[in-house]
Design a protein around this nucleic acid. Structure first.
Length: 408
RNA sequence: GGGGGAAUUCCAGAGCGGUCAAAUGGGGCAGACUGUAAAUCUGUUGUCACUGACUUCGGUGGUUCGAAUCCACCUUCCCCCA
């Protein structure tokens, strides 16, 4: 099976401009393609991860990836999929984020001569002259058409600033620029980028009379139609200091039944035959599939060792046996103890399991806290400092949150 | 440029000058049931020294014994006309 067919089979392809041409290009390793990453945070998240995997897959098939960091477009802000305007970022923040992205990407993609390239569109966008740009490319865009684009339509109700309206032009210009300077003939991106991407192919056609191609990746949605990779606390990050490997593992371990196979297919590098076999699994057997999903992804993002640890820890906690040493933990300073004791409420707050005393109190009253497997029944309960020595104590909040607290 | 409207807690969205820490829904958290799933049901959801106190309703002042509610100005956003 060739790469294009594999992408299809994995359900990764959402829309394409010209299926025949694209298949031809990628299957023969002739594509020089780019994917853009706007530096909106100081770490990549799961959404970016899909794009990185796609790059890797295509690179393995002989194509040349270009990772475009949006140091310039980040100054404008993409209105796609947003109901309100993005917070404007300072130049320093953008630069910092770009640096962080670069570091993380290097873990996944091989950069170097004849390998993948990394470029920053600030290098050319920042130098643009307004009038020149208007005359050069502005004339090629129809406002009527742009307003019909889905990404702007949504914003017509809430208001769209001229700044953001220009995002599509900037992105199109990127493609146009790289088509000429780097021989980039294809663009990939999230499905929400479709209209921006078409802007680029259209611009190239108008200015140069040449064909360029675009393809979008299916957005990873769960069965309820919500974007995956988000939790109540925010995105699931790839940076281990923002989302620990254990938390990362648990996120995938807990996906809904209806979504496991889809995730395995789209995100892992397991052979399709193996995945097809799992398709027949049902009921509680799917738990096995979830473990595989969680393990594979943790391995890809954090490495085999971390994946092992996370899996071992999870099994230990939920199945009763195994080690507890890799679960999230907190070292309690001696100052937290009074007369050699710490109250249950103070303990929960100190470990970050509850943001306020009120919530900790409620949690205990509702029977949601276990310390060393014993339910904490009284909000006035206190624990001896001596118990925290060495291994410390295991605090269980609700059904799934485990935390270890210890002292030196 | 002219006219009109809006800003409430995580989100959406109620809210007669006192009975408002503020309806309702969503989300979150916890309990029951389970498979670390989904669905369902129950409780809970500003902070703290929690039978009490304190800080919240875009901002700043004002009226009043008392303001989320009334007035003035400011800020931001939306709509209509140009």
């Amino acid at each position: 099976m060739q790469i294009y067919e594999e992408l299809r089979a994995r359900g990764l392809i959402a829309q394409v401009t010209d299926e025949e041409e694209i298949r031809e290009l990628v299957n023969n390793g002739k594509a020089v393609f780019y994917i853009g990453f706007d530096p909106t945070a100081d770490s990549l998240h799961v959404g970016h991860f899909m794009a990185l995997c796609l790059m890797k897959r295509l690179q393995m098939a002989g194509n040349r990836p270009i990772a475009l960091i949006g140091g310039g477009t980040g100054m404008v802000g993409d209105p796609s999929g947003r109901t309100d305007m993005r917070q404007m970022m300072t130049t320093e923040t953008i630069q910092h984020n770009c640096d962080c992205f670069k570091k993380q990407m290097e873990r996944f993609i091989e950069f170097g001569p004849d390998k993948a390239m990394m470029v920053n569109n600030a290098d050319w966008l920042m130098k643009l002259n307004y009038i020149e740009l208007l005359r050069e490319v502005g004339a090629c865009f129809s406002v009527n058409n742009m307003l019909r684009a889905e990404c702007y339509k949504q914003r017509m109700e809430k208001g769209l600033s001229f700044l953001e309206f220009n995002y599509m032009i900037m992105q199109s210009y990127d493609f146009y620029h790289m088509f000429q300077t780097l021989g980039c003939n294809m663009q990939f991106g999230g499905d929400d980028q479709w209209s921006n991407m078409l802007g680029g192919t259209e611009l190239i056609r108008r200015k140069l009379g040449r064909d360029a191609y675009a393809m979008t990746i299916t957005l990873l949605m769960n069965s309820e139609g919500k974007k995956m990779g988000k939790t109540a606390k925010g995105a699931v990050w790839l940076d281990p200091s923002k989302t620990t490997p254990f938390e990362f593992y648990q996120y995938w371990r807990n996906v809904g039944d209806a979504d496991v196979l889809k995730c395995i297919r789209m995100l892992t590098f397991l052979p399709l035959e193996e995945i097809d076999a799992m398709d027949k699994w049902e009921g509680s057997q799917l738990n096995r599939a979830k473990e595989i999903l969680a393990y594979e992804l943790t391995k890809l993002v954090h490495g085999g060792e971390e994946a092992e640890k996370a899996q071992e820890t999870a099994r230990g906690l939920f199945a009763g046996a195994g080690s507890t040493e890799h679960m999230p933990s907190t070292e309690l300073p001696a100052a937290k103890f009074e007369d050699g004791k710490i109250g249950a409420i103070a303990l929960l707050v100190a470990c970050g399991l509850c943001p306020s005393n009120g919530e900790a109190r409620r949690l205990i009253q509702q029977g949601g806290v276990l310390v060393n497997d014993r339910k904490v029944a009284d909000i006035a309960a206190a624990f001896d400092q001596a118990d925290f020595q060495g291994e410390g104590v295991i605090i269980k909040k609700g059904k799934k949150m485990f935390h270890r607290a210890y002292t030196r």
